[in-house]
Structure formats: C-alpha cells, structure tokens
Amino acid sequence: MEFVITTYCKIKNNAIWCNGQKLFSVKEMPASDFLKEAYKFSEMNYPKFHKMDNLSKLGLIAAEICFKNSDLLKNNDPENTAIILSNHSSSLDTDRIHQNSIANKDRYLPSPAIFVYTLPNIVIGEIAIKYKITGENAFLVSDKFDAETLVNYTQQLLKTNMAGAALCGWINYDGSDYEAFIYLVEIQKDSIKSVNFKALNQTIVNQLYQN
C-alpha cells in the first residue's frame, strides 16, 4: 500500500498557499484581523467560527482550504479518517486570556466560553464537528515542527488499518505569531491517482513545510 499526500495548505505571513500556489494575501496586519480576512476569503459561512479561539480559527481555515481542494471526504469513510495535529504553544494564547480573567481578586471573571479552548486538541474537535470526521485523534506538542513523529504515527495508523486517511500538520498561534501547515494523507488507489500527489515520508513533509 502506498500512502500519498494529496493536498496541503500553508497559512503564514498574511498569506494562504495551497499545493504550492499562493491563493490569497493581504498587507501586514494584526494576526486576529488577518484571520477575519482569511475567513472571508475561505467563503466558509460557518457562524460558529466567530465563537472560536484563534487557534481553532486558524486550524479551521486551513482545513477548509484543504478540503475545498480535495476529494478526501468523498473518497473516505469519516469513521476511518484520523486527525493528527501538533504545535509548540499548545493553547497558551487562550490560556493567557483565562489567566488574566482570574489574576485579580476584584475582577475575577473566568468564562466557560474561554476556558473550553484552553486545551490544544479543541481545534481537532472543531474540525471533527465541521466535517463530521470521527476517527482517531492525537495532539502532539514539540519545540519545533517534528515531521518524523507525525509521519511515523500516521503510517502506524494507516498500516494497521486504524485509519484509511488522515488530516495532519502543525497549527500554532501565539500572540502575534501564527503558522498553519496542514496536509491530507490518503491511500493511493487507482480511482484517486494523480501526478501531483507526493509520497508520505519525512523528507517530503519537511520540504513542503519549509518551502
């Protein structure tokens, strides 16, 4: 069985790329404003988006761009599709908001709508809900992008039939820094063959991430 990367998306430096092509860019602006512009560009039309924290918003836009340019959801069983994401800052961007809400005895106002986002895997949950994906999940945290662990774990799931397809990558949001790199992995079948697909291995995943 051959596992291939069928689509990938990158979001950073005020721009969105898909499969190596720049789809969208705007002038330099604060990260949260960029997310609003990127949401409009994605034409997602998903009211729940506005309730999410920035990490989930970034992950959802990257997933939307990937799925718009992919037949993964058509070709694969949602029960058999895994979501494996990673980052460096966990949910710290939202953790700081919650921490600020409890720092002062006289203004002690923790909010459940914020607290629920103080776990990094909530972005996996949001993607799962939006696209009805019910397979395996994992959220990994590392100092920097770790292609080796991501690729190995995805291959372990695919080789043991614990997944037939996967959405993988890196979603980091930390203050003014943000970066998303999402790629879709499928089992190469005759029905989905394309010269644009790339083999799933560490070298290629690193190349796609860095370029």
Binding site: E79, P112, I133, G135, N137
Partner: peptide, 11 residues
C-alpha cells in the same frame, strides 16, 4: 486500543 471522536460538541 483505539480512539474515536464524537464530532458532536467540544465540551
């Protein structure tokens, strides 16, 4: 061992 998501609600 195995995992699965509800794809229903975040909390």
């Amino acid at each position: 061992g195995a995992g699965a998501n509800d794809a229903n609600h975040i909390s």
